[in-house]
């Protein structure tokens, strides 16, 4: 059997506003658009994914927050209604998705063998979080590939950003081992924003772009620093400064997804593909991809 491999890594932020703005049939509320810089970036990355041969999308989500280890979806399918607890006015999405349980179990075993606390989630009533749904919908609106969702163990809260980096790195290495042994071609997805300070009020029309801007300038400066380092292929350095970055900007990277993905990909030294950066209700969001194949790697923006 050919060794499995990671064919693309995606930083895929999940503000539900993006799905809302796209008006897919699965989402009940109707919008007049908005956040085009991010949506068009997502659309372009989704087109690239159509030309990549892959078996499964593995997504790490902050909105399945677990405090007792890392959990993996462990049933073959889920279908229900996802209502965003924060923005229910814009996200009420009917989902119907498949899970690659075989690979999920292999990753869970590999992580457990590495000493990481793990758990398979096998309750059929479990509701899939809106982070998973938003990122996966924007990357693959057809939902024609199975997914695996990995929960976010909140080491940052219990210990520190440094411990989060250590444990998420170990999880990434364990997942890579399982992927290689599976023989499968895998797309990794880190579902998170960069800076993550929200406005606590919302305009009457959420998609009113005259009201949208970053929460404050220091968030923007930090985000641009990180995006610049991604562009320069300095992912080891990005992960090294992650604890300070998260502390300064309340970055959603504190959930561990980006660290997990970069560790699984060996901390790329090649330039990342930048697909867009824009604020959503004050938070900083970048769509970024890491393509290990130098023949298909692009300078997008």
């Amino acid at each position: 059997m050919e060794k499995g491999r990671i064919v693309l890594g995606c930083l895929a932020p999940h503000p539900p506003h993006l799905v809302y703005a796209e008006n897919p049939e699965q989402n009940e509320p109707f919008s007049e658009g908005g956040w085009e810089t991010l949506r068009w970036g997502y659309n372009r990355l989704a087109r690239k994914l159509k030309n990549i041969d892959y078996d499964v999308m593995v997504i790490f989500t902050p909105h399945w927050a677990t405090y007792i280890g890392t959990h993996f979806l462990g049933l073959p399918s889920f279908n229900s209604l996802s209502v965003d607890p924060i923005f229910p006015n814009i996200f009420r999405y009917k989902y119907d998705l498949r899970v690659d349980v075989e690979l999920a179990e292999a990753m869970e075993k590999s992580a457990a063998d590495a000493g990481i606390i793990t758990k398979m989630m096998r309750n059929p009533d479990f509701r899939i979080d809106y982070g998973t749904i938003t990122s996966c919908h924007m990357l693959n609106p057809e939902w024609n590939k199975p997914i695996i969702t990995i929960s976010s163990n909140r080491n940052s809260h219990y210990y520190s950003g440094e411990v989060m980096n250590e444990q998420s790195s170990a999880l990434g290495e364990a997942c890579l081992k399982a992927i290689e042994e599976s023989g499968k071609k895998v797309v990794l997805v880190s579902s998170n924003s960069l800076s993550h300070r929200h406005f606590v009020t919302e305009s009457p029309l959420p998609e009113d772009m005259s009201r949208e801007h970053i929460y404050n300038h220091s968030q923007y400066v930090w985000d641009m620093k990180i995006v610049g380092m991604m562009r320069d292929g300095k992912m080891r350095e990005v992960i090294d400064i992650m604890p300070e970055y998260a502390e300064q900007t309340i970055a959603e990277t504190e959930a561990g997804g980006l660290t997990w993905m970069m560790a699984a990909m060996g901390f790329p030294k090649y330039p990342a593909e930048i697909y867009g950066y824009q604020s959503v209700i004050g938070t900083g969001n970048a769509i970024v991809a890491w393509d290990p194949n130098s023949a298909t790697r692009e300078i997008v923006l």
Partner: peptide, 25 residues
């Protein structure tokens, strides 16, 4: 937790089957 201000439940008969993120088992 809420972000946009303070949210107050107002559905007269909210009904669902909930599963906890950690204690789903």
């Amino acid at each position: 937790p809420s972000i946009v201000g303070h949210q107050i439940q107002a559905h007269p008969e909210p009904e669902w089957t909930h599963v906890d993120d950690d204690f789903h088992f």
